[in-house]
Amino acid sequence: MNDQVDGRELEKISVEVAREAAELALAVRDRVVGARSVADLPTKSSATDVVTAGDEECEALVRERLGVLRPGDVVLGEEGGADAEPEPGQVRWIVDPIDGTVNYAHGLPWFAVSLGVEVDGRPLAGAVVEPVSGRVWSAAAGCGAQLDGRTLRASALERPGLAVVSTGLAYDPARRRRQAALLARMAGEVGDFRRQGCASLDLCSVAAGWVDGYYEHGLNHWDWAAGALIAEEAGAVVRRPGAPGSEDPDGLGAEAVLAAAPGIAAGLADLLRAHGVAEV
C-alpha cells in the first residue's frame, strides 16, 4: 500500500463529497422522481431494478468533485462504470450514488450515498450519508468508525438464537424466491429478521449494534465498499465476496457478504451453511 496515502484525509473527503451528493439526491427527487410513476422509470437488470435521474446526477457530481479534489485517483461507479484500471498504489473510489434506489423512488427514507476508497484492493476509508436523516457514517482503516462523530461498536451479543439479522433480496425473481426460502428455513433459528432495502445501511446498522448480523448474496462492489469497512472498524466480523471464479473455502458462496457481531459471527455462518446459503 502507498505509505503516502492518508486514510483519515480520504475519510474527510469522502464525507464532504457524499454530503454534497446527498443534498443533490433530495433536490432531484423533489424535482423529478416524485412526479413520475415508478413503473415509468428506466430499469437495468430487471423490471424492479430502477435507475433514476438522481442516481445519474449524483454520480456525475461525485466524479466532478473527486476530479477536483483528487485528480490522480480513479473511480468505479454504479452508473458510469470504471474510468480506468488503477495502477499499483493508486487510489480508487467505489461510488454508489444512491444505494436503495427503489426506496428512493417510492419515497421511503432508507437510502444513502456511499463512497468507499481502496488502494491495491485494500479498503482504506469510506462514508455513507443518509440524505433524509442527515446521518453521516464514516471510517478509516485502523482508526475506528463513527456515526456523526460518535464512536461505533458492534453488538456484544453471543447467542445467535437471539440475534436480529438483516438481509436483502435480489432483483432477479428466481433468485429472490430462493433467498426467501432460505429466510423461511432460518426463521426459527434467530431472534428476528429485518429487510431495509439498502445494503450500505444494513452494514452500518451492524456497526452501530442496531442489528446483530447481516448477510446477502449478489451485491455489487459499490453496495458494500464503504459499509463493510465501517462495520469492520466498529469491531464486527466481516466477510467480503471473493474474486470472480474464486474458491469458497467457508461454504457461504463466493458472492456472500456477511457482517456480524464477533460473538455470533461463527454461529450465524454455521446456521447459514446448515440451511443451504451457498445455493441461493
Rank of each mutant, 00 (worst) to 15 (best):
D3H: 12
A18G: 08
A18T: 12
A21H: 11
A21V: 07
A22D: 03
L26N: 13
A27E: 15
A27F: 13
V28G: 09
R29T: 05
V32R: 04
A39Y: 09
T43R: 15
T43M: 11
V51L: 15
T52N: 07
E56Q: 15
E57P: 04
C58V: 00
A60L: 09
E64K: 13
R65D: 05
G67I: 14
D73S: 12
E78K: 08
G81D: 01
D83M: 12
D83T: 00
A84S: 03
G89S: 09
W93N: 00
I94L: 13
D96L: 10
D96S: 10
G100T: 13
F111P: 08
A112V: 06
A112I: 01
V117C: 03
V119W: 09
G121W: 01
A125N: 05
A125M: 06
G134C: 05
W137R: 00
S138D: 10
A139V: 01
A140L: 07
Q146V: 02
L147Y: 03
L152Q: 11
A154C: 07
A154R: 14
A156W: 06
A156T: 15
A163H: 12
S166P: 05
Y171V: 12
Y171W: 12
Y171L: 13
D172I: 08
Q179F: 09
R185N: 05
R185E: 05
M186Q: 06
E189M: 10
S200V: 01
S205P: 13
W210V: 14
W210Q: 14
Y215N: 08
H217A: 01
H217Q: 03
H217D: 01
H217S: 00
W222K: 10
D223C: 12
A225M: 08
A225I: 11
G235T: 00
R239L: 01
A243Y: 14
A254P: 13
A254Y: 11
E255P: 04
L258M: 13
A259F: 02
A259K: 09
A259T: 07
A261F: 10
I264S: 11
G267E: 09
E279A: 02
